[in-house]
């Protein structure tokens, strides 16, 4: 075979790919037309706000100027955020808030799912009861917990005094050291049901015959869980953890209603900080830069989420 012939073959091999994609698009134009309306709506409600937020992050928006009079300052907003002390504090709070909430909500959800997977009297009632935190409005729950935690007249503090655990009501949310753990407890209470539902669905996929076979082989409960059940839950666990992390990164209602980020910023997380900067201080440019940073983090998490969701799809297609 001559060199020219080899080139021709190589060129031919490439050509169908390029034209093939185009041809496929032309051949399937009606499919694209079906998704076009959704695509247009997404461009308007998602793509444009993202573009505008990124654009705004390069501007200063002083409180005496309208948005149209904003001042271009390049990357100053990013530099200001990344070098500020409050960013480090808020990032640490966000990290603790997200990781602790996700970890414990997942753990509690897993425990509840495993318990409810067995048949026992009253299982249905208990399942419904455990779902209550998930269906209760986050706003209502936050107000209720705020009063339960109240540092002077809260029920929890009063009970602690009555039973002799403490001399005076426990200071849950007016203390910079206890406020974040206290809010995390509320968050875990609110979202562990979600993990429970997801994992209960996952447990349905664990083959009974495998568990029985393991039992026949002499595996104890822990070994059956670790070697049979848990591997089958890996996929759903991954998705649950990622969804919880995304939700916790974006959590606003509980910290805002209960403490507004206080006292002294001890419960300020990224999202509450962004809200305060934007709507309390009207630094829309600075808040946008903050949002872009959060967006990058969320996209990274989203990438792993999609990967976890689509894992095995290619194998199935083949």
């Amino acid at each position: 075979m001559s060199i020219a012939t080899e080139r021709e073959i190589a060129a031919r091999a490439k050509r169908p790919i390029r034209f093939g994609v185009l041809r496929q698009m032309v051949d399937r134009r009606s499919d694209y037309l079906y998704v076009l309306p959704a695509l247009i709506v997404m461009m308007i409600v998602i793509a444009y706000p993202i573009y505008y937020t990124i654009e705004l992050s390069f501007f200063n928006t002083p409180s005496n100027l309208q948005m149209k009079d904003k001042v271009f300052i390049g990357l100053d907003n990013y530099a200001r955020i990344l070098t500020s002390r409050s960013f480090r504090e808020v990032t640490m709070n966000t990290f603790i808030w997200t990781v602790a909430s996700t970890f414990f909500a997942f753990l509690l959800g897993l425990g509840a799912a495993l318990s409810l997977h067995r048949e026992f009297l009253g299982r249905g009632v208990l399942r419904a009861v455990l779902l209550i935190p998930y269906v209760v409005s986050a706003v209502a729950a936050s107000y209720v917990w705020k009063w339960l935690y109240h540092s002077d007249f809260g029920v929890i503090g009063a009970l602690a005094v009555q039973f002799g655990f403490t001399d005076r009501p426990i200071n849950f949310i007016d203390n910079i050291h206890t406020v974040l753990p206290s809010l995390i407890v509320v968050n875990i209470w609110k979202e562990f049901s979600f993990a429970m539902i997801m994992l209960m669905a996952g447990l349905q996929t664990v083959p009974d015959q495998l568990l029985r076979a393991a039992q026949v082989d002499g595996a104890n409960a822990w070994q059956r869980f670790w070697h049979v059940t848990f591997p089958h839950l890996k996929g759903v666990s991954m998705v649950t953890v990622l969804l919880l992390m995304v939700a916790n990164f974006n959590a606003f209602i509980i910290p805002w209603i209960m403490t507004s980020g206080g006292p002294a910023g001890a419960s300020d997380i990224w999202i509450t900080q962004i809200y305060t900067i934007a709507f309390g201080r009207q630094r829309y440019g600075l808040a946008s830069a903050y949002s872009v940073i959060l967006f990058i983090v969320m996209m990274t998490l989203g990438y792993f989420y999609v990967r976890a969701l689509t894992r095995g799809d290619d194998t199935r297609v083949k």
Partner: peptide, 14 residues
């Protein structure tokens, strides 16, 4: 009140 840090005047009324 210890709760002064999270109180508005509304919470002082009770």
């Amino acid at each position: 009140p210890v709760s002064a840090l999270t109180n508005t005047q509304n919470e002082n009324q009770q």
